[in-house]
C-alpha cells in the first residue's frame, strides 16, 4: 500500500493540500491537519477514486494532549485500494464527512456516542448506541469499565413512573 500511496494519482489528487504520509506495519496512512481534513477527504473521493468510507472512528490517547485522533478508512473499488486518513484533533470537535459519504452519518453518530467528538455540520448528531439522556462517553479512557452509575437512567425512569402509584395487595 505504501507504494500505491506514492503513485502519481495520489500526488495529483492531494496537490496543494498539506499532508504527510506515515508508515505503519499494516501499510501507510495519510496524516493531515484538522483544517485540511475535509478538503483532503473530498480530494481522495473525487480525484483518487475512494468512493467508499468504510469506517470512521477515533483513538483516545488520554492523558496525552491533544488526546483524540480521528481515523477515516477509505476504500476504492475502482483501484482495489484502501487508505487511512488520520487527523489529530485539537479539541473534541471535527468537520463532518457525511456530506461526502452519506454512509458516514451513523459512523459519526457512533463516534460521538462513544468518544464525545462533535462533528460540525452533521445533520443529525444524536447518540446511536447508548440511551438518550446518558451523560458519559464510554470509550473515553477515563471512563471506568463498570460505568458511572449505570443504573441511573433506569432508576430515574422507575421512580418517575411510580409517582402516584398505590400498591395493591
Amino acid at each position: 500500500m505504501s507504494e500505491q500511496l506514492t503513485a502519481p494519482r495520489f500526488a495529483a489528487a492531494l496537490e496543494g493540500l498539506a499532508h504527510r504520509v506515515v508508515a505503519h506495519p499494516d501499510g501507510a496512512a495519510i496524516e493531515v491537519e484538522q483544517a485540511a481534513l475535509h478538503d483532503v477527504l473530498r480530494a481522495l473521493r473525487d480525484r483518487a477514486g475512494f468512493a467508499m468510507c468504510t469506517f470512521v472512528t477515533a483513538i483516545d490517547h488520554y492523558p496525552r494532549e491533544p488526546r483524540f485522533q480521528l481515523h477515516h478508512q477509505l476504500l476504492s473499488l475502482e483501484h482495489r485500494d484502501r487508505v487511512r486518513v488520520q487527523c489529530t484533533l485539537s479539541g473534541a470537535s471535527a468537520p463532518t464527512c457525511s456530506d461526502l459519504w452519506p454512509g458516514a452519518n451513523w459512523m459519526e453518530r457512533e463516534c460521538f456516542d462513544m468518544f464525545g467528538i462533535h462533528f460540525t455540520g452533521h445533520p443529525d448528531l444524536r447518540r446511536l448506541l447508548m440511551p438518550e439522556g446518558y451523560e458519559h462517553h464510554p470509550l473515553r479512557k477515563e471512563f471506568p469499565h463498570h460505568g458511572i452509575e449505570p443504573d441511573k437512567l433506569y432508576r430515574d425512569w422507575d421512580r418517575k413512573r411510580r409517582e402516584g402509584w398505590t400498591e395493591t395487595p
Binding site: 488520554y62 479512557k141 477515563e142 471506568p144 463498570h146 458511572i148
Partner: peptide
Amino acid sequence: HKSGLDKHAHDPKARQAI
C-alpha cells in the same frame, strides 16, 4: 474486579464517582 489490571479506571475523578 477493581484490581491493578483495571486499566480503564485511572482517572481520579472517575474513581471518585464510583
